[in-house]
Nucleic acid binder design. Structure first.
Lengths: 210, 210
DNA sequence: TACCCCATTGGTCATGAGACCAATAGCAGC
DNA sequence: GCTGCTATTGGTCTCATGACCAATGGGGTA
């Protein structure tokens, strides 16, 4: 009955184990929140001992920061189709904004809210958050600049337009944890409509371009 | 040396003690965050024993919710001058948006970020957050409706405009914990300029009206 | 003045966190 | 095949939390 489990000790390559730990922590962060990332919790998920996680991350906060960076970078790649994909800027922007406004975004919106708050207490996480914000901001500004060059968008200041759009996206993301968000026509597609106004696109262009 | 402090036991009226506890917890929340509200911490501030706080708040979460409600309601009264103050809608709106965009708002912006995130784990707090959002939303919509009635503003949908303004305010509030916010003309007075556009006011009207 | 309610004390207990460390066992290189 | 490095184990220690409770004494009331 009280047979202790085999406890067969598996030794992996350090990089492999480390990647596995970060990936697991990122999944926990997305599903349950950054504060649920603990040495014990990650260890349980991987079927190893907590001490091992501590071996790779002597400061638990570093694991939290890295997990957020991993999750945010991975999700951004999903949200913003690369220019290499061959899509025109209008379609790329539309993809981004539609997904960001859609139901699938709730987890990621929550994660950003989570990280932005937690960075108040964890300076390391704050640095990562700001770095991720910079990357997203630059990617969006670049996308807009592409559109201006191709004549699809009209904007004097691509970075200014990107910032404005992101403020709207983050503002809407503030309500990620409201189980019953306030329903009003003004908030429907607010990010899409804001982008169309800023880039001088006829209303409905973005949603239609998908 | 080891003289134990007198431990003079002060007995206060329940309502008085309770109010004192909530007020102290709200101050801690504003200065250090809602998660710093603990029975021990509040007890230390008041010079009483932790058990006493537990007596008034058998569930610690309820103290957190009430502290947030107290802080948010109190700060809103400061931010949004009442109609009774005799100020015209334009000046009242300008006061609100200037303060919300100013440096004094960081603490409150952080608190809202804090509460919106924490409500993921504390349903009771979530209900309070939504109630406070509703109150703010209605107050702003009412202010805008006043302005439309007096002919100062032009808006078909006062609630829609209020929502749009609040999304912008909350979006900007997302960056409350960034020690070095990204500096760009587009974010300067974004809330003010958004309000002027929505309410069909000449640019600069709001800031000038103070 | 005496009584009694209940605000307040001062503990205990269980839980879960991170940090730390000596012992162990995979596994690659000699 | 042996040896040495180190990934991994399995503990321990300390700290903070919330919940719970019996005893105490302040102060209004009879």
């Amino acid at each position: 009955m009280t047979s202790s489990p085999p406890a067969t000790r598996v030794r992996k390559l350090p990089e492999e184990r480390r990647a596995e730990i970060v990936r697991t922590a990122a999944r926990i962060a997305l599903e349950e929140g950054l504060e649920r990332i603990t040495l014990r919790r990650v260890a349980d998920e991987l079927g190893v001992r907590p001490g091992l996680i501590g071996h790779y991350f002597p400061a638990a906060d570093d694991l939290v920061s890295e997990a957020f960076a991993f999750a945010a970078a991975g999700e951004r790649d999903t949200l913003m189709p690369d220019a290499e994909a061959g899509l025109p800027p209008t379609a790329r922007l539309a993809h981004f904004l539609v997904r960001v406004g859609g139901d699938d975004y709730v987890d990621l919106g929550r994660l950003w809210l989570n990280a932005r708050h937690l960075s108040r207490f964890k300076p390391g996480l704050g640095a990562v958050v700001r770095a991720q914000e910079t990357t997203t901001r630059n990617a969006l500004a670049e996308l807009i600049a592409d559109g201006v060059r191709s004549g699809e968008f009209t904007a004097e200041d691509a970075m200014g337009a990107a910032l404005h759009i992101l403020v709207t996206v983050d503002g809407l993301g503030s309500y990620s944890n409201d189980d019953v968000p306030f329903d009003h026509p003004a908030v429907h597609d607010m990010a899409l409509r804001t982008a169309e106004r800023l880039l001088v696109l006829p209303p409905g262009t973005l949603r239609r371009s998908i």
